[in-house]
Design a protein around this nucleic acid. Sequence first.
RNA 1: GCCCCUGUAGCUCAACUGGCAGAGCAGCGGACUCUUAAUCCGAAGGUUCUAGGUUCGAUUCCUAGCGGGGGCACCA
Length: 481
Amino acid sequence: MGDDLLAVRRAKLERLRAAGVDPFPHAYPGVEPIAGVRAAHAGLEAGTETEARHRVAGRLHARRGQGKMAFLDLDDRSGRLQLQARADVLGEERMERLLELDLGDLVGVDGVAFASRRGELTLRVEDFAVLAKSLRPPPEKHHGLQDVETRFRRRELDLMANEEARELFLTRAKVITTVRRVLDEAGFVEVETPVLQPLYGGALARPFTTHHNALDRELYLRIATELYLKRLIVGGLERVYELGKDFRNEGISFKHNPEFTMLEWYEAYADYAVAAARLETLVHEVAQAVGYAGELDFAPPWRRVTLGGAIADATGIDVLAHRDRDALAAAIAAAGLDLDTGGRTWPQLVDDLLSKWVEPELQQPTIVMDYPVELSPFAKAHRSEAGLTERFEAFAGGMEIANAFTELNDPDVQRERFEAQARLEREGDEETQPYDEVFVQALEQGMPPTGGLGLGIDRLVMLMTGTRSIREVVLFPAMRD
RNA sequence: GCCCCUGUAGCUCAACUGGCAGAGCAGCGGACUCUUAAUCCGAAGGUUCUAGGUUCGAUUCCUAGCGGGGGCACCA
């Protein structure tokens, strides 16, 4: 029974205490990463002794007993190191106590490095300490932890058992530090804007709603940072970015988690072409920083297509020639596409065509430009194409990764866009922009011409690590209770 | 919300057409001073997700529920 496994470990815990050993000491100073120990002895010939003493700490992963001598494997974040325990070095009593350790125990070791007869770098244990007794059995040592439910619900077990999981989240951290470095070096200021917002905005999505007791009012978890960041541009910060969680009350899929990490930046005196160039450079730098070696070529410039052209190429339908709902629905029906047009608005139909027939085909990084104004309430009208905006979305691996505009800064036009959103809502669109008067007033103060961009960090990490599910790159993905 | 697949020992997996639920790892007892998925000997370890049903007999078939995966719907 499982209880027996736990009882055995509990009994060992009590034996340690009875022997005067603290199974949960307060600290263990002076630990060296295992990777550092390995680097110090790279190329050591098989059978060679050294006089180098090292202190390492980590989790006991395996044990190969030989009676009066045993080998053990110790894992830390940086790698795995073999330990050799010898009765003639430790003495009978400490040898016995060392062999009574359980796999999964946290252990600290002082030892002398040597290369075994087979050439394996090994630490001959001269002293050791239990750093924390593990009271539950670890996952299987060779196959690791496979069960996806346990891996996501109990990520600590996944990280402890599967080196790939540890590496993936180290890569994720490197993606984020690289993003910060590139933007900081380009003169951007990192800022923090409210997560709890009286009015949500900046994207088309349903929000999570919560309640503030003292104020006795509804608040929303943000679905985007856009409107607050543009107010900072009005204020004169000129180049700002925010890296943080957004929350969208929508379905869960391989590329959607209800809370996800978003980067948004805004740059005064720039337009969407500048944003596109910055995106290409940023993603390329990230790919280099994490050593990306997959199929995708992130080197700038990326392929550029127009939205109308891309949809026409994929479906034969010219959405710009069918500018109202019924005409477009008729064209879709005439083309024989498998798409239910009932109850869909014109912008929703365009979005359907894009997501079903265009997006899955966009494997190599591609910038899709010039979206209809109906889809883009915060984007400035195109400087030369009537009815379009200066907006692009970037795709890679068959997923949208970024969305950018030349920002709309004419307050009167912004008011009209909000009113158009309200009309769409009356037509049945559940994801429209609520009217944000404070934002319009900010624009009335004068916002410089601005280029802005949002980049989905989780999806970027998926691309960089070649994973197909957002749950693999989020430490604790959303699960049912 | 709908459809399909799925749930067996702590972990990784078996169990043919409905016929005594098995193995490896881990754990337990023992042997072993260069192993590295160590090896060898021994003894253990199960509410087969839950609740019903069909049957002489259910891990297996049926119904419902719960969890997970995939898809659809929704979703920038």
